[in-house]
């Protein structure tokens, strides 16, 4: 139904009066076409191309141009972007910043990406951090974390959390994490769990203090995935600690489920935690079933898939109801 037909229909059902119908029809006709997101997407693509182009430029020209000059140029670009972002910074508030300039946030993003290029180059060429490789990721993590809070920038917050996670030797990337040998190391698994718990605790405390409470979802998504992946990795790799990891995974899933049900701020987003709880829990359960129950016939396997599948469908449908009802 076109807007005009709909307006006539609404008029006939006397939901609208004539004057209102004409007003809406008129605003529909003169309403300008918004290119907001198209332009933002172009800006974002441009920033990514520019920073990867400059990164390549550095990589290809180690030997030709003086290192100092390249370093200076990128440092200058980084500083210019940052100064621009600072001049256009949103006013400091513990709430979500309401007024923001069109370009400040993008300049900050560019400055951060350039900082990474700069840092990598400096470490490669001048060995600034020596063999303390942890610092290479820890420094940007702390810097970006501070910037994210000051500038109220979710993208920089994600970069900070990614750097923080790499810092403990784990890069959480979908599909590659199982193939990285990192998780065969018990220390890495435990530090990942520890980091995840710290992030979760800090995020919840900050939320309680009402400091940038809209960041909580980003924090918890990163930390929750890290925690559950680490617990699964422990389950798969360390038989001697099996009961602990089973208990941990069960507790993690239970907490994610509880959080999704009581979270009030972002209803739609909180469903993600229900999904995480269901999927990570299911992977763990299926692993345990096949490893320890040694089903005798394939019929038992199929029955397992049928029963578990139906139970989880029922769980998701039931939880949907409980989450939606509490929200009213």
């Amino acid at each position: 139904m076109s807007p005009d037909d709909l307006l006539n229909d609404l008029r006939q059902r006397s939901i609208l009066n004539d004057e209102q119908r004409q007003r809406i029809a008129a605003t529909e006709r003169i309403r300008p076409f918004s290119l907001h997101w198209e332009l933002r997407a172009m800006l974002y693509a441009g920033i990514l191309l520019l920073s990867s182009g400059l990164g390549l430029l550095v990589y290809d020209n180690f030997d030709h141009v003086g290192h100092g000059i390249l370093l200076l140029i990128i440092a200058a670009a980084c500083v210019v972007s940052f100064v621009f972002a600072w001049l256009n910074r949103p006013p400091w508030t513990t709430e979500q910043a309401s007024s923001r300039s069109a370009f400040g946030a993008y300049a900050l993003l560019l400055a951060c990406l350039l900082f990474l290029t700069l840092e990598g180059y400096a470490q490669y060429q001048y060995n600034v951090f020596g063999t303390r490789y942890g610092l290479v990721t820890f420094v940007p993590a702390m810097l970006f974390l501070a910037l994210a809070y000051r500038f109220d920038h979710q993208g920089v917050l994600s970069m900070a959390l990614t750097a923080l996670i790499s810092w403990v030797g784990v890069t959480v990337r979908p599909l590659t994490f199982y193939f990285k040998t990192n998780f065969f190391d018990q220390r890495v698994v435990f530090s990942a769990i520890g980091l995840a718990l710290v992030i979760i605790a800090v995020a919840l405390v900050l939320e309680r203090q009402r400091i940038k409470a809209h960041f909580t979802l980003t924090h918890l998504t990163f930390a929750g995935n890290l925690l559950l992946v680490a617990l699964l990795a422990g389950l798969f790799n360390f038989d001697e600690l099996l009961p602990w990891f089973i208990a941990g995974l069960a507790a993690g899933c239970w907490l994610a489920d509880r959080y999704a049900r009581q979270e009030q701020r972002n209803r739609a987003g909180s469903f993600l935690f229900l999904l995480m709880s269901a999927i990570y829990g299911y992977i763990g359960l299926t692993y345990l079933y096949f490893k320890y129950l040694h089903p005798a016939s394939s019929v038992a396997d199929y029955v397992y898939f049928i029963v578990s599948g139906i139970v989880l469908i029922a769980y998701l449908l039931y939880q949907r109801r409980s989450v939606l009802h509490e929200s009213v």
């Binding site: 933002r40 800006l43 441009g46 182009g53 370009f103």
Partner: peptide, 22 residues
């Protein structure tokens, strides 16, 4: 070369986007 090409394309896109937004 690729690096210059990417850098120029990036600058060009940023230019168009910034110009368009303003």
């Amino acid at each position: 070369p690729l690096n210059v090409h990417l850098t120029l394309c990036g600058l060009f896109l940023i230019g168009i986007a910034v110009g368009g937004i303003r």
